[in-house]
């Protein structure tokens, strides 16, 4: 590697660096707002999940905790302060902070829709206080059965038929099958946004 001063242009032209890696470096180095934090974190969580999905054949017997630790390890390597099972009104599955910004994630292996609702309620009513720089969280749904899109569709329908205060749902622009809900948080009285993120872990090859 050359020892001369290296500009941003030099980094962009470096063949060992993918554009996404350069962008990640730049985003983390220049992050100033909660919105920028969320955009970066969502991309990093999605990349960690893509790693899990590509190794799903090895993860069939892994527990929720074991799967979540993989995501946390990925985020730590990116420079986030990320913890598993940390005390935050209870033992939250995924705790992430960077600078003054915070995000909490609850992770569930899909067993039933009541179990997913339990995770959503834990996130929204136990762990998250819904404050300004903690107004977004995530429900990570590990789906080991087939047809994940059907699971997400049904989960969204059940969430919408509940009694959440001023609930709205929208498609997630950055990840197919994921969706975003927003409702009035009971503690803060302000809106709390949850990104519902399916992780496709079904593995049943039929080639032999």
């Amino acid at each position: 590697m050359s020892l001369r001063k290296l500009s941003l242009e030099d980094l962009m032209q470096d063949k060992s660096l993918l554009p996404e890696q350069f962008q990640s470096f730049l985003d983390m180095a220049t992050m100033e707002s909660y919105e920028e934090f969320l955009n970066r974190l969502n991309a990093d969580v999605d990349a960690a999940i893509a790693d899990l999905e590509s190794n799903r054949h090895l993860l069939q017997n892994d527990s929720e905790d074991r799967l979540s630790v993989n995501i946390i390890s990925y985020l730590k390597a990116k420079g986030y302060n990320a913890y598993h099972d940390v005390q935050h009104g209870g033992h939250v599955d995924i705790y992430v902070d960077f600078k003054k910004f915070k995000w909490l994630g609850e992770a569930k292996i899909h067993k039933s829709y009541d179990y997913l609702m339990q995770g959503f309620d834990q996130l929204c009513t136990r762990y998250a206080e819904g404050a300004d720089l903690n107004s977004h969280g995530g429900l990570i749904i590990y789906i080991k059965i087939s047809k994940a899109a059907d699971v997400v569709f049904e989960w969204k329908k059940r969430l919408e038929s509940g009694s959440l205060d001023e609930l709205t749902t929208t498609e997630c622009k950055s990840k197919p099958n994921a969706f975003v809900s927003c409702h009035k948080h009971s503690t803060s009285g302000t809106f709390y946004t949850v990104r519902h993120i399916p992780v496709l872990l079904h593995f049943k090859p039929e080639d032999r």
Partner: peptide, 13 residues
């Protein structure tokens, strides 16, 4: 460079 930047991003986090 990829690894250097990865380490610097981590140490600056």
């Amino acid at each position: 460079m990829k690894l250097l930047l990865e380490c610097l991003q981590y140490l600056s986090g």
